[in-house]
Every structure is written in structure tokens, then in C-alpha cells.
Design a protein around this nucleic acid. Structure first.
Length: 593
RNA sequence: GCGCGAUUAGCUCAGCUGGAUAGAGCGUUGGCCUCCGGAGCCAAAGGUCGCAGGUUCGAAUCCUGCAUCGCGCGCCA
């Protein structure tokens, strides 16, 4: 394929050209870092710009404009570049050749990776996300980790990584003693048969109410928890039942959201390893006993500012372990099982200190064992808090918004729009479309903003169907497919080569091509910064550009066969990029809606 | 007290590894279907980028201080 000889992105190509020219102009080795070429801030400046001359000028203590002129004079001839101008104080602006640009986009679309750089090279990354607690339904508090984590999951795969998605569910702990007590005393068989998880939730709430009046129940629950942990067969059977019930609930939500995991290794999977972790840390002198507990202390001059003077308890006075202990055991297991280059934890930002502490403790442990410092990158990819207008997300209070309720409401609203806009479609198809649109809207509304911003829960905003939303992107794709249907072309069947036949010269066509060419760059940026919103922004721009093109340019009744073929190819290129991009966000792509 | 984060248009937010005239959506006002899907397109109004310094050819972006708000800080996760 022709793509193999091309740099993966236009930016990379132009950056290389500038580097070559700078070397030829005698500036080789002046700078160790290249200033990458970027799209121009304004189309009147051309297609791409390089600001490299500013850096060179600064290093050489000369006029950047003169440097830019010298670089421009030394630029190698390349079919991509039709013209280069020096502008302002030293900008080097590139005008791309129309047919070359179109050919480049064709090659990218034909590439199995969509032109996205293979950054991972098959290396493994473990992503820890979603992680709900067993015996409770998923509520909107689980939404962000699930959706953002899954988008990262998809982005890492697109970037050439082997991903191990691990759902670290909360399947161990004192709540099981309470549930067991509740189960034996207050189980409503009929209610359980009707709604198993709902009955478990009710039993939990019931227990808390009863225990408030009768504190001996707490002792009973602790005893049952202890029995479970000691391997009591009856309690263990109940515990497994609770997990099964919960997994049915979770998987229902995951299926609808398009989320899947490779592993579901919950807290219980590491229970057996916890004493060893504590012993090892004690032996290594990283942890110490303190008033009957075992703690890791962080000195006031620790490299990591956040943990200075802090303390992490890894075994309580009563001998019980905490989630920090589990996290350390989990980390060890992941390293020995998958040898990942990276482990990404997707949780709420309020856990920043916790993960800094766990990572710092592990680094000390690692150093003590003489393991290499660059063996694995631990990344806490935290996201902002979902703030509710009123009331907390408390299972006990019962005022929590469940994830399925959110999805159902989204689908309900989508259905109303589908019924209004597409009354001709059969009922079953409208239902299918509404499901896709509703789910897409929910996912996109979370992904389209900076993950680290706090979000206030707002039905209307979360389920919007107009503007910068999933339905708009899906609609743009459906428009592409509609044109193709009228031309008797199935998705993916349109010949792409005519895109480069020189007929795409309209301003709207060039604008669209420029954006399509940037797709690999925006995927790389989203992956590198762990901000899927960068990809959302770019797809939104593509959809806008497509709709402008659609409005101003006739495809099916073009002026000539060449022009028609070129425009049909452009429609397919747009569809291919939109569809691939939506796939990375986990937003369903539809042929009609 | 220490740490993390935020402060950009009426509202909700992008943009933050420094680049040319700060963007979008919603809302408001006004246009566009004899034409491939109007979930769309075009246009207008709307901003001392919290405040004050600093760094430099250039700062919403980097540094320092301040103000306001949110979150976190030894036996919950």
C-alpha cells in the first residue's frame, strides 16, 4: 500500500521537511527538539504552519524571520507542498496540494489502523475502570469511570496497545456479613424472584435500619463476615450467589453501553495475598507497626509532594486489611501476570492522594527489591466529580439515580425525536435507533468535555440531541449513507481513488479534506493526554464541515462524471472517518436514523 | 495548616507541552427546504480569559503572590 511510504500524519511529514531544510541551511543540531508543524490558526495562512524558526532564532540569537527565509529556501521539493510562505515575524506557512491531500486521506482510510501511529507496538496496558460494588445496582456515580475508562480502553487499542481491561469490583468486605444476616432474617422470596438485585438492595437498607435500633446485629454481621472469610460453606455459597446476581445486573448495563472487560478480578481475588504484602513491607522496613496497626509513613521531604507527612494504614488494629493493601497486591499480580508497560487507574479525582500513596509505597518496595525504575508506568487517570444538585448518591437513602434509569430516560427522549423525524420507519427499527441514539448521547455528553472538570448532573444537558452531541455526529454519518443509498452504493463500496482526481477544489471540499487528514493526529492527542474530548471536538468539526459541504455542494448531480466520482469518494471518506471515530468513543454508528 | 483542582460570552463548557484576530453548544435576534435527510445550514449580538506582578519577539496558556469556590488529608472505598 502506498501508505507505508508516507509518514503517518501531515504534521509529521512537514516537521520532517522543516528539519531537513534547517539542517541544509546549516542549523543542524542547534535544537534537540523539533517544533512540530500544526494546522494554521486561520485558513488564509494556508493549511499548516511551522513555528520552528522562532525556536531556531532564539537559539541562534538571530532574527527568526531571516531564519524562516533560509529554511524556506532550503526546503526539499515535495509533492505535498505546493507553496510555502514566510509570514509575520517568522511563521512558515504551507499550502498543500489538493490532489496529494486527497490521496493522503484515501491512504489513511484504507490503512487498517486508519493512519493512527502504532505507539503501543504491541506493549500491554492494564486499564482498571468501572469497578462497581457487588450487591448494589450501578448508579450514576459509576457512569464516569465506566464511560471514560472504556473510551481510554478503545483509544489504547487504536494506538497499538494490547489492552487488559480489568474490572476491579468490590466483592469483598463487611457488607457481606450484613447481607447474609439480612438474607436469613428478612428475605422476601417473591420479591427476590421478581427482582433479585433490588431485593439485595432492600435487605441491605433493611439491615442498616434494624441495626440502628439493635446494635447486636452489627456483631452478628461481623461474625458472619468472619465466617465467610474463614471459608464457611453456607456463607460462601451465599456470597457467590450475590456476586452472580450482581454480574447479571452489571453485564446488562455494560452490554447496552458497549463496554466489555477482559478480566473481572475483584477485591476477593487478592484476599489470600494480603498478609504477604504486609509482611514483605514490614521486612523491607517500608511499613512499621504503630499502635497495633501497620502503616507506611511518608517523610516530610518525600519526592512526591502530596504524600509528605502522610500515613497509609495497610493493616488495621483489628487485623483487617484496607483497600490500599488490596491495591498493592493487585498491582503485584498485574505486573507478574501481564508484564504491562503501563497501568491506568480510572477513578474519581478524590482518590488522588490514595493512589499517590499506593504508588509511592510500591516504588519504595520496588527499589528495595532492586527492580528497574522504568519497568512500568503507573497512571492515575482521575476525572472530576459528578455533582448532584440535591441529595447524595446513597444507596441507603434510596434517592440514587440508577444507571439503567438514566439510559432508559435517554432512550425515551431519543424515541420521541425519532418518532417525530422518521415516522416512516418501522416500529422495531425506530426502537433500535432510539436505543443507539440515547446511549450515544449519554456516552458523548460525558466524553465531550475535559474529563478532569467537575460536572453537575443535568438531565437536559446530558441527554441533549442537538448541537455538539452524538446524535449530530450520527446524523451526519446517516446523511453520508443516505447519499450512498441513492447512488446504489453500500457502505464501504465507493471507489476512493477518484478523490485524488483533481476535481475536489471547492472551499468546502478542501476544508473537509484538511480535517479528515488530521484524524490520526487527534486520536494520538486524545490518547497521549488521556482526553477523549479532543477527539470529540475534532469529530464535531468534521461533522460541521461535512454538513457545510453537503449544503453548498451537489454530489449526485455534479457537473461531470469525474466530479461526481470524486465527491462520492469524499462522502465515503467522511463516513469512514466519522464511523471510525465514533467507534473509538463507543458511540453507535447508524446507516439511517 | 498542607496538598490537588477550578475561575474564559447570559448559561454550560472547549482551548492550557506559549504563536497570528480567544472558540463551540445552548439561549436570544434575523434569514435558508420547487434541490442528495431542516437532528441541518447562514448571519447578528454577546468576552478587561478572577486580580496584580514577572518571564519574552509573543501569555487564556509558563512562574510568583493574592482573592473566591470545590475536593482531599492515619485504621471507609
Amino acid at each position: 500500500m502506498t501508505a507505508s511510504s508516507r509518514p503517518s500524519t501531515v504534521s509529521a511529514l512537514l516537521t520532517e521537511l522543516v528539519a531537513t531544510a534547517a539542517a541544509a541551511a546549516g542549523h543542524d543540531g542547534v535544537l534537540d527538539a523539533l517544533e512540530p508543524a500544526s494546522p494554521t490558526s486561520n485558513p488564509s495562512f494556508g493549511d499548516y504552519q511551522s513555528n520552528h524558526a522562532f525556536r531556531l532564532g532564539k537559539a541562534l540569537k538571530t532574527n527568526p524571520r531571516a531564519v524562516a527565509e533560509a529554511v524556506k529556501a532550503a526546503l526539499p521539493v515535495h509533492p505535498a507542498v505546493v507553496r510555502a510562505d514566510v509570514a509575520g515575524p517568522g511563521f512558515l506557512n504551507f499550502h498543500l496540494d489538493d490532489a496529494w491531500l486527497a490521496g493522503h486521506v484515501v491512504a489513511q482510510v484504507q490503512d487498517t489502523r486508519g493512519g493512527v501511529e502504532d505507539r503501543g507496538q504491541g506493549r500491554t496496558v492494564v486499564i482498571d475502570y468501572s469497578s462497581p460494588n457487588v450487591a448494589k445496582r450501578m448508579h450514576i456515580g459509576h457512569m464516569r469511570s465506566t464511560i471514560i475508562g472504556n473510551a481510554l480502553h478503545r483509544l489504547y487499542e487504536a494506538g497499538g496497545y494490547r489492552v487488559v481491561a480489568d474490572n476491579h469490583i468490590g466483592d469483598w468486605g463487611t457488607q457481606f456479613g450484613m447481607l447474609i444476616v439480612g438474607w436469613r432474617n428478612w428475605l422476601d422470596e417473591a420479591a427476590f424472584a421478581d427482582d433479585a438485585i433490588g431485593e439485595l438492595e432492600r435487605l441491605y437498607v433493611k439491615f442498616r435500619e434494624e441495626a440502628a435500633a439493635d446494635p447486636t446485629l452489627d456483631d452478628l454481621a461481623r461474625a458472619e463476615t468472619a465466617k465467610l472469610q474463614a471459608g464457611d460453606p453456607d456463607n460462601r455459597a451465599l456470597w457467590l450467589k450475590f456476586i452472580d446476581i450482581s454480574m447479571v445486573e452489571f453485564n446488562g448495563v455494560y452490554d447496552r453501553l458497549g463496554v466489555r472487560f477482559d478480566e473481572t478480578l475483584g477485591e476477593s481475588a487478592y484476599n489470600h495475598a494480603l498478609p504477604g504484602v504486609v509482611d514483605d513491607l514490614l521486612d523491607a522496613g517500608i511499613a512499621v507497626e504503630d499502635a497495633g496497626a501497620v502503616v507506611v509513613r511518608y517523610p516530610d521531604d518525600h519526592d512526591v509532594k502530596a504524600v509528605r507527612g502522610k500515613l497509609l494504614v495497610i493493616r488495621k488494629q483489628d487485623g483487617a486489611y484496607l483497600y490500599g493493601t488490596t491495591d498493592l497486591a493487585t498491582l503485584e499480580h498485574r505486573l507478574s501476570t501481564w508484564s504491562p508497560a503501563e497501568i491506568v487507574y480510572v477513578t474519581d479525582g478524590r482518590q488522588q492522594l490514595h493512589f499517590q500513596q499506593v504508588f509511592a509505597a510500591w516504588q519504595a518496595w520496588r527499589a528495595h527489591r532492586g527492580l528497574p525504575a522504568d519497568g512500568v508506568a503507573l497512571r492515575h487517570m482521575w476525572f472530576g466529580t459528578l455533582k448532584l444538585p440535591e441529595g447524595m448518591m446513597s444507596t441507603r437513602k434510596g434517592n440514587v439515580i440508577r444507571l439503567v434509569e438514566l439510559l432508559d430516560e435517554a432512550v425515551r427522549r431519543a424515541r420521541a425525536v425519532v418518532d417525530e423525524k422518521s415516522p416512516d420507519l418501522p416500529d422495531a427499527l425506530r426502537a433500535e435507533i432510539a436505543e443507539a441514539v440515547g446511549i450515544g448521547a449519554v456516552r458523548y455528553s460525558d466524553l465531550s468535555q475535559n474529563p478532569q472538570s467537575d460536572v453537575s448532573f443535568d438531565w437536559d444537558r446530558m441527554l441533549a440531541m442537538e448541537g455538539n452531541t452524538a446524535p449530530f455526529l450520527m446524523y451526519s454519518l446517516a446523511r453520508c449513507r443516505s447519499i450512498q443509498r441513492k447512488a446504489d452504493l453500500a457502505p464501504g463500496e465507493t471507489p476512493l481513488a477518484p478523490a485524488a482526481n483533481g476535481a475536489l477544489v471547492h472551499e468546502r471540499e478542501r476544508a473537509l479534506l484538511r480535517l479528515l487528514a488530521r484524524f490520526p493526529e487527534s486520536v494520538a492527542a486524545a490518547l497521549e493526554t488521556q482526553r477523549p474530548n479532543l477527539l470529540c471536538d475534532h469529530l464535531f468539526e468534521i461533522a460541521q464541515a461535512f454538513n457545510r459541504f453537503y449544503f453548498d455542494v451537489r454530489v449526485l448531480d455534479a457537473d461531470s462524471d469525474d466530479q461526481r466520482a470524486a465527491r462520492l469518494a469524499l462522502v465515503e471518506l467522511s463516513a469512514a472517518v466519522l464511523s471510525r471515530g465514533l467507534g473509538l468513543l463507543g458511540v453507535p454508528a447508524l446507516d439511517r436514523m
